[in-house]
Design a protein around this nucleic acid. Sequence first.
DNA 1: CAATTCTGAGAATGATCATTCTCGGGTTCG
DNA 2: CGAACCCGAGAATGATCATTCTCAGAATTG
Lengths: 211, 211
Amino acid sequence: MASKNMRARLPAPTAAPGAKFAAPAPGARGLAARSALIETAIRLFCRQGINATGIDAIINRSGVARMTLYKQFGSKDALVAAVLEAEGAAWRAWFFARLACVEGGPKARLLAIFDALGEWFARDDYFGCALMNAVAEYRNQSPAVLAVTQAHKKPVLEYIRSLCDAAGVEDSATLVSQIDLLMDGAIVKSLIQRDVKAAKEARAIASALLR
Amino acid sequence: MASKNMRARLPAPTAAPGAKFAAPAPGARGLAARSALIETAIRLFCRQGINATGIDAIINRSGVARMTLYKQFGSKDALVAAVLEAEGAAWRAWFFARLACVEGGPKARLLAIFDALGEWFARDDYFGCALMNAVAEYRNQSPAVLAVTQAHKKPVLEYIRSLCDAAGVEDSATLVSQIDLLMDGAIVKSLIQRDVKAAKEARAIASALLR
DNA sequence: CAATTCTGAGAATGATCATTCTCGGGTTCG
DNA sequence: CGAACCCGAGAATGATCATTCTCAGAATTG
């Protein structure tokens, strides 16, 4: 989506009737509403699932009018797509930034992937990968959700591939695919077993593969 | 498993001693109804998700009366638990039988795990692991679903552990955990990418770990 | 066969779902 | 200032949700 003005200005939650904004620039209110809706929806979708989260809950907790939601997104499905895209982008930004500040060569960075995952799993608001959860919730029957998820994975895997190439790996395509599988496995296992050390296990396997 | 309509009024069921679920005295008709309900519910839950499947759909497609469902299970949540348990049991039966007829030693059997997964992924009615999907759908917020899933994994991992021990693996606990992670990763990756070869990738990794 | 219990198909219930409508109040512009 | 316009808060809509109620008929029992 075209995002020119990104000033996130949260409206007052449960605004009292009569309390209005000062004089916002045209379009600012709409963008602020979008941000508030996406932020609220991310939290609720991650916590309790997409199907289990109603529009009313998003409306009430974001303080945005119902009509505004439908003006901005058109439908719940479109909101879901926007939310998943935003969550994926935020995750990638965090992931790349986390790896960018790793000391050492590309091999160290490849292994640091799983250190990053371990820190993610340890967060108290960890409910698994929002995109993978959405795919599972829809039983992979939603082309839109699948497309967003694959579009999310693509740059991640490309970055990993660049690390493999820099590390002088002979068959980098295979290793990328293997690391992808290890990441998926760690994410799922940590969710099912509520066990942070799935990241360490995946790291050990990756370390063995790197020889 | 958070029910939305919580107006629960439990009837006093004459539970049979040793029965897995609180059910009225099981007669032949009741058991046939249970089977039909579970079979229909498995198919629908796997195909379109638990939250997205209404009681009406299960009723209509199974030909069982609504009252019979509630007499047999008491609530949708209880039906979900029974369905997941039945699906897990069926999967384990298939899995163990599939590995039992593998020629060669325990190492060959360990690798055959991933051949079995590959055959599973290739089925046209493959929608991922019903239990893992349920955990993801509830965002691991349902203790009942989590308990069923962990109870399902336990005998699977114990069997794998016995194979590791028979193969003379020094640290079998670690290898079991690693194979578990590889299985989870392959299951998820095959679902997201609609790619059967995730099983072969996991097999290759396991093969590397077995040395 | 008569009296009683049990079953279940279908309607009823009330909550919640996503989506749309209404219309009063604010903004814009001539 | 006044007319035309836009926005959004809340009500309305109609579908569907899980669960319960009703009551005619089947099954069981004396």
